[in-house]
Amino acid sequence: MALSRREFVKKGSLSLSFALAGSNILLSPAEAYAKEVPFTVLNAGEVLTLESVCEILLSGATESGVAHFVDHQLGVDPNDSLLVLKYFSFPPPYTDFYRPVLAALKELSQTMFSKNIQSLNEQQGREFIEAIRDKNPPDWKAPPAPLAYLALRNDTVDVVYGTPEGFKKLGVPYMEHILPPEGWS
């Protein structure tokens, strides 16, 4: 499917190929979220945990499609991956990072507050993130918590501010000059 320049800018530079209703279409993660595109790697519980943590990290993460972005990228060849985790020398497959991290985060919320992450109030959300930001919390059974903080925070910033829509929110020009070719994912 060839896109015009206008369509590309409208879709955002994070347009990915999602399977929907039997065909592959290019959608931004935000559009994939709005259309409730089925997840292919993460299960419902993992999606909820990921969205809840990323929403504390930066409000708007869920609607920007952070879970669809991560889920999509966990399904591609790691060398083609767009996940920032690539920079942090964590060896693929990246599900070996996200799965235990999401499970550990879910457990940590219960340990700290006897609540699911999505039920934390603002103060609790802050304490929850601060508990993983600089060191592993007690009994953490996953890749290093500060790495989890950095990776999820970057994933969130990618979808909230790393797109033409994100630049627009910040009031700076995107200045793109290249179109994605057909079948580019």
């Binding site: 530079s13 994070l14 060398n79 767009l82 996940l83 990618d158 995107y174």
Partner: peptide, 22 residues
């Protein structure tokens, strides 16, 4: 023209497959 204007897409220019331990 495979080089897209995006910091996120730029990560395709880097390796994920490990060639080096440190």
């Amino acid at each position: 023209d495979d080089l897209y204007s995006s910091q996120t897409w730029a990560r395709r220019l880097k390796w994920a497959t490990p060639h080096m331990m440190e």
